[in-house]
Design a protein around this nucleic acid. Sequence first.
DNA 1: AGCCGAACTGTTATATTGTTGCAATCCCTC
DNA 2: GAGGGATTGCAACAATATAACAGTTCGGCT
Lengths: 162, 162
Amino acid sequence: MTTPLPYRQHDHAHCVEHALADAREICKRSGARLTPIRERVLQLIWQSHQPLGAYELLAALSQDGHQAAPPTVYRALDFLQQHGLVHRIASLNAFVGCPHAGRAHTGCFLICQTCRNVLELTGKEISAAIEQQSQRQGFRIDHVIVEISGQCPACQQAAANS
Amino acid sequence: MTTPLPYRQHDHAHCVEHALADAREICKRSGARLTPIRERVLQLIWQSHQPLGAYELLAALSQDGHQAAPPTVYRALDFLQQHGLVHRIASLNAFVGCPHAGRAHTGCFLICQTCRNVLELTGKEISAAIEQQSQRQGFRIDHVIVEISGQCPACQQAAANS
DNA sequence: AGCCGAACTGTTATATTGTTGCAATCCCTC
DNA sequence: GAGGGATTGCAACAATATAACAGTTCGGCT
Ligand SMILES: [Zn+2]
Ligand SMILES: [Zn+2]
Ligand SMILES: [Zn+2]
Ligand SMILES: [Zn+2]
């Protein structure tokens, strides 16, 4: 078994470039305006695979010399969420970049409690099971949240070696 | 298809009685103290199948004539969660009684955005799919959140008839 | 019964997260 | 270059959750 992204070393600059390029393309196609603030917030979120809180983003914007208040950040986050560029992790009150932006998917998040990195799965098995069980109850689905907290393979190994 | 609980009329007093009796039994067996505050909070939560926020509980306790501050409620909620008597719904910042207290299960919540009622599923299909996908990534699971927002059968029917 | 330590509760203050409302500005279109 | 919608700046506020510490209650023990 190879440790999956993002739980191992990788060329993260590539993740960021890819995410930003995708974002520009997606916004262009849908006629949405990826303004400097929005792009900067997206870039900040993609600093790592660890979700960032709104007020952490706010602090980072202030460090830029950019005057910013909470609504600035929340509005940018709303925009990015609406266009599928970031996801909110409800159990952390934090936001993470979506590696599958543009492709239809139901996020399913593996959250390592040790290194804080988050992996977004897209396998159909889980969403299929959820749809089946909901349908059995006659329930019409709008939105699904699946957040799995635990320990990633890298951190398990690190813990075992100590 | 019959509309499932809690989305149809039912003898809810029975739900409450059952939940409280279960809670007393579970606490007795584990040597935990179901104090008056804790029991009252549990009873308040079971007023309905709609999740209650901590500050709604706080207001209700105050109406009792009980002087209460946020820590009172949060401590009671912590206790009830630790003993599996209530669940926190992360997407609502609210708490709902667990109808399967005492039995090992991974909650999976169907949240009606119209009537606010929440049904907790316990089918194994979803958790099995989650465990399988996590294992495939080498991820060790601590805790799983599945929250499905949408519309319950009763509210779908009501919407169709208008 | 009386004592002790742990658990529980009261109280105040504070931290964290998210929203409302309105004015000013920007950008695209006509 | 005017009109109008989207975006941003800004101030205040609302909602949710926690920290710290003092007082009280409870159950087991002598
Ligand atoms: Zn990366
Ligand atoms: Zn990890
Ligand atoms: Zn009921
Ligand atoms: Zn409903």
